[in-house]
Design a binder for these strands. Sequence first.
DNA 1: CAAGTGACAGATTTTGAATATTGTCATTAG
DNA 2: CTAATGACAATATTCAAAATCTGTCACTTG
Lengths: 191, 191
Amino acid sequence: MEPIRDRILDACEALIRRHGPAKVSVVDVARALGMSHANLYRHFPSKEALREAVVERWLGSVSTPLAAVAQQPDPAPERLAGWVRALAAAKEAKILAEPELFAAYEALAEAHRGAVERHLAELHGQLAHILAEGVAEGSFAGEAGALARAVLAATSAFHHPHMVRTAGGGPDRAAALEAVLALLLKGLRLP
Amino acid sequence: MEPIRDRILDACEALIRRHGPAKVSVVDVARALGMSHANLYRHFPSKEALREAVVERWLGSVSTPLAAVAQQPDPAPERLAGWVRALAAAKEAKILAEPELFAAYEALAEAHRGAVERHLAELHGQLAHILAEGVAEGSFAGEAGALARAVLAATSAFHHPHMVRTAGGGPDRAAALEAVLALLLKGLRLP
DNA sequence: CAAGTGACAGATTTTGAATATTGTCATTAG
DNA sequence: CTAATGACAATATTCAAAATCTGTCACTTG
């Protein structure tokens, strides 16, 4: 039997999937689990905390698979390109497949920056790891942490939730990402 | 006497400034001008068309001054950096001056993708002009149009309304723009 | 005592009838 | 013929009353 906390998150996520984030009340989640809503407050201090936990788990499903990409044995330049492509593809797929959950994430991101900041810090860490190895092996020039921030900023059009959602997919978009990646990879090489 | 079309736009913009875009009706605009609302429909086919015209004029106040920067006699690399800095500074200045008006325009712009597309096309044209001269004088390598799209995408964190508004200014932000610009300028040089 | 509950107060959301708005048109005024 | 208008139908928005929701607590249950 799954821990109660995870079963609550599962039920909440399923309801958000089906009815959209605005229509899901704590009472609904409790009813789906056959318990009183008061009991839910034994496991989460508030509705906001519950929703944030759902979002955090969902963000983890983006950043966790990326960690494997960041550890691959390729040379740093190819690894960096692969990592950015994987990040952009993951966000795009999530948004197209689960617009309701994504709306919940965006709404929470406005109110509570916490989950998002942790997610961004995780992404920055992975990217800095690739860049540090690139600097060590002589492919890149600069300070890995600063370069990671610059690469994240320069590719935000392809992974920032709001940008991905309003842009909508398409082949032009993939081509644009390749063009930006080509510029960045040339810019990262030693002078 | 200003043309009637401009006086209507002025009145509409003033009301949006004072009350926000959601609270401005066609009747309000007509009353501010001392005419019947029916007469407004002689000059604009719909309320949406009127609001789009307001947005378009506002976007023009960003892109028109930039045209001068794009024509300066500097070498292409410095001109490109100056142009991007000017674009980012213009957006940031507008948000600092009147954050709630900026939010109003962002909401309107989301609803009127057409006006935004034209604005982006104008910016793309200016940037492609700089890049084409850079290619001609041997500073840059590639096709100007494609490079312009890549540079716009890679700097969108610093000029896209939503990114500028949610990020909030600060010295870190200026440093981040410089880091991205440095990467891009190195990437644009001949291989 | 660990897990859970019903009842409750205060805040929020829904609902539907009253009001306002959009867009059209026949008509007026010059 | 042009600029403008009042009256109007259809749609959208407000607002207050009713319903629902969030979060707490004293209390049961095993």
